[in-house]
């Protein structure tokens, strides 16, 4: 049987590697990601925590080897920093609510649309998501500035007499932040809606519900997990917002993240680190609460 010979010839040439036990294989596969996250994330974050517990000094950025809670005490005592924290949270809440509201409407429209319209709506959102923040914010600056496109159009149409102030204030901040988070809230809701049968709305209409009613009764309850995930992401990123406040806000709209950078550049490492630690804790606490609530509702969802 010559067929068997051919195989027989081949077999010994197979490298006689000892087969790896499954456990070893799994560990090897996980090693790159785990090592990377340990080295670039866990350890640096731990180091930041350590820095936040160092003595403050006016002479150098960091006095090594010292232990102190001065950084945190300063956070509590400084009325400026307290104001920054309150403003950041308020700003994050407003941006989150707007992003979830607009995002849900947009996602619903994309889901309802068919063919070319759906493609255009989705492509627009993916485009926006993948465009660097700097470009989006720069573009917003150009469009919303006092002599920008929007104000030109408003004045020309006679709707307003003088240009509106849309940047360098809270409005600018929120506008800028929407560019950051809106794509993510849209896609969170959209990905949940894709698992919903498109004929449900037709069925609801058929049973006598108006389109708006059908959306409210049938689609909205289904979209809640996606809205929650999108909301949690929007809040986390808005609470940590840096670029939009720095570019589209003014000196009086300081967020925690901007303040972190200010303190770092003025070499106040313990204060900057303490601010970072508190900010991260707040963000992760809100995230955990959001995900916990989501799980209790029975919607297990990966972010």
């Amino acid at each position: 049987m010559s067929d068997a010979d051919a195989v027989g010839e081949g077999r010994p040439s197979r490298p006689a590697l000892p087969s790896l036990p499954a456990v070893t294989r799994t560990r090897l596969l996980l090693a790159p990601l785990v090592l990377f996250d340990l080295l670039a994330f866990v350890v640096p974050m731990g180091y930041l925590l350590r820095v936040s517990l160092s003595e403050r000094s006016t002479r150098q950025a960091l006095v090594r080897g010292t232990w102190s809670v001065d950084g945190y005490r300063f956070l509590l005592e400084s009325s400026l920093l307290r104001r920054v924290f309150v403003f950041t949270v308020l700003f994050a809440v407003v941006a989150t609510l707007l992003a979830v509201g607009l995002g849900t409407a947009y996602a619903y429209a994309a889901w309802q649309a068919s063919g070319a319209v759906r493609t255009v709506l989705l492509a627009g959102i993916v485009m926006s998501m993948f465009t660097t923040l700097v470009v989006k914010l720069f573009a917003a600056l150009v469009v919303f500035s006092p002599n920008g496109v929007v104000n030109d159009a408003l004045v020309a149409s006679g709707l307003v007499g003088t240009p509106l102030r849309l940047i360098n204030n809270e409005i600018g901040l929120v506008i800028g932040q929407l560019y950051v988070v809106l794509p993510y809230t849209v896609l969170s809701v959209y990905s949940v809606l894709t698992s919903l049968d498109e004929h449900l709305v037709e069925a609801a209409n058929d049973l006598g519900a108006t389109p708006a009613r059908a959306a409210r009764e049938v689609v909205l309850p289904h979209a809640v997990p996606g809205m929650a995930v999108g909301g949690v992401i929007a809040f986390a990123w808005s609470a940590g917002a840096f670029a939009a406040p720095a570019l589209l806000g003014s000196k009086s709209e300081l967020t925690v993240a901007v303040e972190v950078q200010n303190r770092l550049t003025s070499f106040e490492y313990p204060v900057a680190a303490a601010l970072s630690v508190v900010l991260t804790t707040v963000v992760l606490a809100v995230l955990a609460a959001g995900l916990y609530g989501l799980r209790r509702r029975g919607g297990g969802h990966d972010v």
Binding site: L30, L33, V34, D37, A40, F41, V42, V43, P44, M45, Y47, L48, V51, L62, I233, A236, W237, A239, G240, F242, A257, V260, Q261, L264, Y269, A272, A273, S276, L279, T280, V283, L284, L287, D302, V303
Partner: peptide, 27 residues
């Protein structure tokens, strides 16, 4: 645990990650 570790950096504010890397790698 691995899933959490993998996804967590995505949810930490960029400014915080940036500062931690700056301070740590600066050493």
């Amino acid at each position: 645990a691995v899933l959490g570790l993998a996804v967590l950096p995505l949810l930490v504010p960029g400014v915080v990650l940036g500062s931690s890397l700056l301070v740590f790698l600066g050493e």
